[in-house]
Nucleic acid binder design. Structure first.
Lengths: 130, 130
DNA sequence: TCCGTTTATTCTTGTTAAGGCATATACCGC
DNA sequence: GCGGTATATGCCTTAACAAGAATAAACGGA
């Protein structure tokens, strides 16, 4: 039950929902999450930290990038809720657009496996205009 | 998306989860929820208020009792999440015990339809010892 | 009309968390 | 080692909320 409450606590924030929705598509580095969400770095980083602290995601390093992904071993409860989230996300504009952006991003990166900054196109637009 | 966040906000509290789990079994009056949860009246009332304010439950009066129930028309998102919750609840001790208590309570009340205080057994134990 | 029961509301206090700014840390290439 | 990029952390302010105590409101019955 405590676990369930913790999961719902993670899910009751818009930014975290968008992040989780993206991670359902596979591992991602922070900068891509940032770019897709269009949210400031601190915000994204903090929410990722929150999700990690509560056991929903895990990190690995790849050079100077951190690759976030959904935890590999998921309890039944977590799996159920992620599935439910995906269901719900399928009908939401924002969620769908995020995934579309991700798809584009991956195509621009020649679609190699852990699609992250690891292999950026030279002329990729900088993150967050300013 | 906003709706989804609101739903999760409702779900990220232990007491509310227990209440919703009970209401999944059917309408209930406040005093029975109180009795089953073993939580003080204020607490239960407030959480019911919260759930109502966020559109997860609705109330009707029956004499001096208020009968709470899950909202009749549920969005797809809400329905999905309630189903998911029930799934998760099935494997949790507290949730199961709450439902068992409810079953007993209903049996004691001769199992008539909107099982609430409307027809209490004369020798029913008072709510919350004090 | 007064009483007891049922439920909600108000007020207060402590905790948690969100968002922003500035800064720190870690790594890369030179 | 230096500068630049990527990411995290600390501090601050503000808002939301949980919980408890006391009280109010609404109703039924004698």
């Amino acid at each position: 039950m405590t676990e369930l409450v913790a999961i719902y606590a993670c899910l009751c924030d818009r930014t975290r929902l968008r992040i989780l929705n993206l991670l359902c598509q596979g591992p991602l580095c922070v900068c891509h999450i940032q770019e897709i969400l269009g949210e400031p770095q601190v915000k994204v980083s903090k929410h990722l930290g929150y999700l990690k602290a509560h056991g929903l995601v895990e990190v690995s390093r790849s050079g100077s990038w951190r690759i976030y992904r959904l935890v590999a071993k998921r309890t039944k409860v977590l799996a159920s809720n992620l599935a439910c989230l995906q269901d719900c996300a399928a009908e939401d504009r924002t969620f769908r657009r995020d995934v579309e952006k991700l798809t584009v991003l991956r195509r621009d990166l020649d679609g190699d496996a852990p699609a992250c900054c690891a292999s950026p196109k030279p002329n990729r637009r900088p993150i967050r205009g300013r």
